[in-house]
């Protein structure tokens, strides 16, 4: 059973539907025991970093998340909250990934970045079976800077971390649940992790 962490962020339902389409059972829950007992944990998110971190801290879900031993997949805001700090609301995040989340700054490119962009420089089993430069759907104004935990990159304004990985923690900035067949492959790779 896969646990999808329930908190005040949208898009949770879409993740559950995407898992259903690849034949994986999941529950949406904020119960600590259910999260700890799950074979895999997905930490989704669309919303504001500060509001989301406050919500998680009030329920002590932040402590639960950082102590998990099974594979964890952060998606979008989920990736950002697993980094050290976000410029969005000057928010101290959970610090799994040793990098900063910053606001895109550009005079000519539109922000948020909305649409399909390609990922490259894969260095994770999450991307097994994908062609280089696969297209994924992405919607965000903030990005995680590239660091040595970066396992895929995307270019928008500058190259940023499309995916991060450290120990049992995996995270993607884009939305695999909305990224067509490419997204399905990534989710399948995640649920097949040992």
């Amino acid at each position: 059973m896969i646990a999808i962490i329930k908190y005040n962020a949208g898009n949770v339902q879409s993740v559950q539907y995407a898992l259903q389409r690849i034949g994986a059972d999941s529950i949406v829950t904020d119960d600590e025991a259910a999260i700890r007992n799950a074979s895999k944990v997905i930490f989704p998110g669309v919303g504001h970093a500060n509001a989301a971190m406050e919500y998680l801290r009030e329920r002590e879900l932040d402590k639960v998340i950082v102590s998990l031993q099974q594979p964890v997949l952060g998606i979008c805001l989920g990736l950002q909250l697993l980094c050290n700090h976000s410029e969005e609301g000057d928010t101290t995040c959970m610090g799994i990934f040793d990098t900063e989340v910053k606001l895109f700054e550009s005079s000519n490119l539109k922000i948020p970045q909305i649409g399909w962009n390609n990922i490259y420089d894969y260095n994770s089993v999450l991307f097994s079976g994908l062609n280089e430069d696969a297209f994924v759907y992405t919607v965000h104004s903030y990005y995680a800077a590239v660091n040595n935990e970066t396992v895929a990159k995307t270019d928008y304004v500058l190259p940023y971390s499309a995916a991060l990985q450290k120990d049992n923690f995996y995270a993607v900035q884009f939305h695999p649940e909305k990224s067509g067949k490419v997204g399905e492959t990534i989710l399948k790779n995640f649920i097949q992790l040992p």
Partner: peptide, 8 residues
């Protein structure tokens, strides 16, 4: 729709 399609 959400259950059946994998694009936004």
């Amino acid at each position: 729709i959400a259950a059946n399609i994998n694009i936004p």
